[in-house]
C-alpha cells in the first residue's frame, strides 16, 4: 500500500529507457528493430540463426510496430530496422536517419473475416470496393491502431476507398496490439481485419476466421531494411551492414523463399 510500490514500475521503465542504449553494446551484437509481422510469422527465427552461424554476429530482435521500430532507429537505440511502410521509410531516409536502404522481400495483405461475411467481401471487385462494403455493413472491424505498417496500410486503403473512418468508433475497433493479438481479438469478436499473409498463414488456422479478399496491387506489402545512420549515432554499422548484405544475398534470399508454414511460402524474396 506504500505509494512507492505503485510508482516503482514507472521508475523502472524510466530507468530502462535511459539504460537501454549502450548497456549491451558490443562489437558482435546487432540490434534489429522490426515489425511484429516478421517476428510473429516465425520468419526471423528461421533466418537469424543462419545469419549468426555464417557471420559470427549475434542479433537481438526488438519487435514492435513499424512506427516504433523507426523511432528506435531514429534515436539510435538499434543498429538496423526491417519494416514495411514504404512512405515512412522514404521519410526516414530523407531526414537522414538511415543509410543503405534495400528492398528485401514482400508478401501481401489480405482481408479476413467471419464465415458469414455480412459485408459481402467475397463479391468485392477491388480492394477499394471491399473497404466500401465494410463501411456500409458497419460490421465489427479490428484495426491494429498501433501506428504499425499494417495500420498505416489500412488507413491508406480507407482513404483510397474514400471512406472517412476518423469518427467511426462504433464498429471500427482500434486495438493497439501486434498482429497476433489483433487476430486473436478479431477471431473472438468475429470481426473483419486487414492482415499480412504471413501472419495469417502462420496463425490464422486457430482464429475461426476466413480469407475473404485477396489480390491486386493495392495490397502488396514490401519490406525494406535500413541501417541506422552511423554519422548520427554510435551504432554497430558494420554489423548492420553485414545483416543487410546477407539478407539481399543469394543465400539470404533463398532462405526467405524457403520459409514455409503449412506448406505455403510466406514471403517472396524481392531484392534487386
Amino acid at each position: 500500500m506504500k505509494p512507492f510500490r505503485r510508482i516503482a514500475p514507472l521508475l523502472l521503465v524510466c530507468a530502462a529507457v535511459f539504460a537501454a542504449p549502450g548497456a549491451f553494446a558490443s562489437e558482435t551484437l546487432v540490434r534489429l528493430a522490426t515489425t511484429t509481422s516478421t517476428d510473429n510469422s516465425g520468419l526471423l527465427r528461421h533466418l537469424l540463426p543462419q545469419f549468426e552461424r555464417e557471420s559470427g554476429y549475434r542479433v537481438q530482435v526488438i519487435s514492435a510496430g513499424t512506427g516504433k521500430a523507426l523511432k528506435l532507429g531514429e534515436s539510435g537505440d538499434v543498429d538496423v530496422v526491417l519494416v514495411h511502410a514504404p512512405k515512412s521509410e522514404r521519410r526516414f531516409m530523407d531526414l537522414g536517419h538511415g543509410v543503405d536502404r534495400r528492398t528485401v522481400m514482400e508478401n501481401d495483405f489480405i482481408l479476413v473475416g467471419p464465415r458469414a461475411d455480412p459485408a459481402g467481401l467475397r463479391r468485392a471487385a477491388s480492394a477499394a470496393d471491399a473497404f466500401r462494403r465494410m463501411h456500409r455493413a458497419a460490421h465489427a472491424f479490428v484495426s491494429r491502431g498501433d501506428d504499425s505498417g499494417t495500420h498505416k496500410k489500412e488507413l491508406s486503403l480507407w482513404r483510397a476507398a474514400r471512406v472517412n473512418v476518423a469518427d467511426e468508433n462504433a464498429w471500427r475497433l482500434e486495438v493497439g496490439r501486434g498482429m497476433g493479438a489483433s487476430l486473436q481479438i478479431a477471431g473472438e469478436l468475429q470481426a473483419y481485419m486487414l492482415i499480412d499473409r504471413a501472419t495469417w498463414l502462420f496463425a490464422g488456422a486457430q482464429s475461426e476466421l476466413q480469407l475473404l479478399y485477396e489480390g491486386g496491387a493495392e495490397l502488396r506489402n514490401p519490406y525494406g531494411v535500413i541501417a541506422v545512420n552511423p554519422a548520427r549515432h554510435h551504432v554497430n554499422y558494420p554489423g548492420a551492414r553485414a545483416l543487410i548484405e546477407w539478407l539481399v544475398s543469394e543465400r539470404g534470399q533463398s532462405a526467405i523463399g524457403g520459409y514455409t508454414a503449412g506448406g505455403a511460402r510466406l514471403f517472396t524474396p524481392s531484392a534487386r
Partner: peptide
C-alpha cells in the same frame, strides 16, 4: 479488454500502448 480505443482502452493499457508506439 483488448485495449480497444473508445471501448476498452484504459489508463494502464494506453500507457503500455503509447510507450510501444514511442509516443
Amino acid at each position: 479488454g483488448g485495449n480497444i480505443l473508445h471501448h476498452t482502452r484504459n489508463i494502464p493499457t494506453a500507457i503500455a500502448l503509447e510507450t510501444s508506439k514511442g509516443n
